[in-house]
Design a protein around this nucleic acid. Structure first.
Lengths: 224, 224, 224, 224
DNA sequence: GATGAATGAGTTTTCATTCAT
DNA sequence: TATGAATGAAAACTCATTCAT
């Protein structure tokens, strides 16, 4: 599960090369189809070494997985802090943008995430899905509750369902972005970078229209 | 790619048993992990026969794939016809419900679809993604254009972006449904059947709030 | 456990070559140390074939094991029948000689037997030891009981302990013979073939002296 | 073959821990299956150290082997001395009991012995069997000769064959005891401790009947 | 002298594909 | 046309041994 001391004692460069090759392999092939043979060949070390470091293939995956979770946690914590004082829709916008930046910085990690969602035979799949689920609860729910308390959201919104919708919409937005980013050249959506901000804007505008508090007393009246 | 004549000349029952076993196997294990051995054992035919009918494993997958695309096309064509006279949001609602019915009827086909999206090593992945893209163009674009022409949608909507949004939202809605449907018991979202219609309603309400034509002149005024 | 049909359908010669190589390998190296690699190389077939025939290494061993048990059973049944009319000590003598003939004919099978007794990690070891135990009960006990009933044995003998002794003595006699036979050249005991019958005679003479009914009334008196 | 000086210079405790772990491992797994990895892990020393002390796995085994032989020699010498004044059958009885005590005290050493007898790929097997053979010559032969000289044995006994018989019977007796001792619970023979002495008595009684000098002149006459 | 990371040949097992029957 | 036995490359994993520190 945790890498053996052996691995942690390696020179940093070697550690990084190993992690890099592993992330590559898992991102390209998922867990079962990933080949330790290919990894060690790419890294240029003996086959036995990987097993000395991580016990077995699953141990290696655990390590990469935990590393990825840490990356995501770090990124989310940062956004939450930095946007504490802005309004609900700005926070969502910044979260989306942070997600996009994360994918651009760690596209292979995101690919592993996507594979895990829809591939049944990952070792940590259940724990993983619970973690993802917790994200909605821990991250989005407070945002929604604060937004409601501050009067930035329509007061008739059901909290849990709103969280579900936000989770679904944001996740799918990033999926769509990621697919177009990763498949660049495959012709799908052909989303050029410059249109991203525009799409984010439109996304937020729709959210605001659907969830935001009606502006002014007329809006209020109309909805009642 | 296409099955050889030898396959088409088989008795219908045998054809169906072969397709059924193949869908099972691909849905459970993806392409590479799918085992021709297991298939022929389940079907009860000789291993060589599969290769006689389809050339190789990839040929078999092509066939199953095309069959699945046909199923989807058929389902969509039906919805489009039946809802021709209803308004935009009702058509979207009916499309969503048709999607849910499709997943419930063909869960294994949908699982193959999900696997294909995020697994790079499917043989037809590129062609597949293009097909999926075409779906947005062929299916949703006319709906949006008709909706705009009939004045059921806000006139300031950009057609292509609206199509993108609808595609993203509906697809993600079905994914969420499917995951909760397939992972029943895994604890994710735990969407009980009876809440589906409620979620669809809420989904449509949000869409209507965000995309629908503002009601009355006051709404109109407020937005300008 | 049982060999797949595939194996039984092979030409007899091939079946025999495979069994021969397997017996060789298991006799030389025991179960765990036996190498399927070496077997297939010696036989000259593809590695996969063995696994097609027997599922896995253990399956192959089961097959060889059952084959060996059958050989032993057959041999014992024959001796029992052929010596039904002779006296107790002649039956034991013939059993010993049959054992020697068996070892000379199937020395590798006997080696597998010896390995199984003292090697803990054989797959069927427990079942095997039970079988061996049954041998004492099924084969020797009736002999002893008949011997007692016919007055060929001292009437004060405890049946079970006598069976235990006979089992131990005969087994060890064959072990000693086998070791000297198999290790020919290693210098141990250096039992030349021509001395075997002499040793058997001495063995029987001792048994007779220890277990046989004292001859005449004087002997009877002396013991009382 | 002999341990390097480096080993002998270690603190006694460390030497003992190493030997203990090695005996454990060889007794449990034989030679080839024994894992140096497991040993060093249990001992808590570096893997390289074993190779520094003993050159290689075989060197380690040589050392353990010689140690075991010394243990056996010591035990036998003691019995021989202590029973110098008793009669032949009492000496045999005491030897058997000493053997049983040895197995109870060093069961792992005895297991290694048993494994070596029937496993061809032990490094020292040939030398080992010669040593065992010497045991018969060095230990039993004088006993028999003394017994004959003292008139405790039938004068018509052939010395070498009697030695062979005693060796075989006693060895097999201990094997049977050991198997029932080691396999406690496996159901073989199920010899409970309290029956051991009884079996030894019966064993000696049979020996005495077969090999002992007939009592009185009548017996003498009867046999002639 | 002690360490333990690195090595690579070895193990069993799987499976798509071929081809003689 | 249908069969299914044969193939061999590839997989994950083990472990005695070496050697730089």
């Amino acid at each position: 599960m945790a890498p053996r001391d052996t691995f942690k004692k390696l020179e940093d460069d070697k550690q990084l090369r190993i992690m890099d090759a592993a992330i590559d392999e898992f991102a390209d092939h998922g867990f079962k189809q990933a080949s330790v043979n290919r990894m060690v060949q790419k890294i240029g070390i003996a086959k036995g070494s990987i097993f000395q470091y991580f016990g077995n293939k699953e141990g290696l995956f655990h390590f990469i997985f935990n590393h990825a979770v840490e990356l995501v946690r770090h990124s989310l914590r940062q956004v939450k802090q930095e946007t504490a004082d802005t309004d609900f829709f700005q926070r969502i916008e910044q979260s989306l943008l942070a997600g996009i930046r994360f994918i651009e910085k760690h596209p292979r990690v995101y690919r592993i995430y996507l594979k895990m969602i829809f591939q049944e035979d990952f070792p940590l799949r259940t724990e993983f899905l619970q973690q993802v689920h917790l994200f909605s609860g821990e991250y989005l729910k407070p945002l929604v509750e604060t937004g409601l308390a501050r009067g930035e959201l329509r007061p008739d919104l059901n909290v849990d369902m709103t969280v579900f919708f936000l989770d679904a919409l944001m996740d799918r937005f990033l999926q769509a972005y990621c697919v177009s980013f990763l498949d660049a050249g495959a012709g799908l959506y052909q989303a050029p970078e410059e249109q991203i901000q525009q799409k984010v804007n439109e996304f937020i505008r729709l959210l605001r229209a659907g969830m935001g508090k009606p502006e002014g007393e007329f809006g209020q009246l109309l909805r009642e």
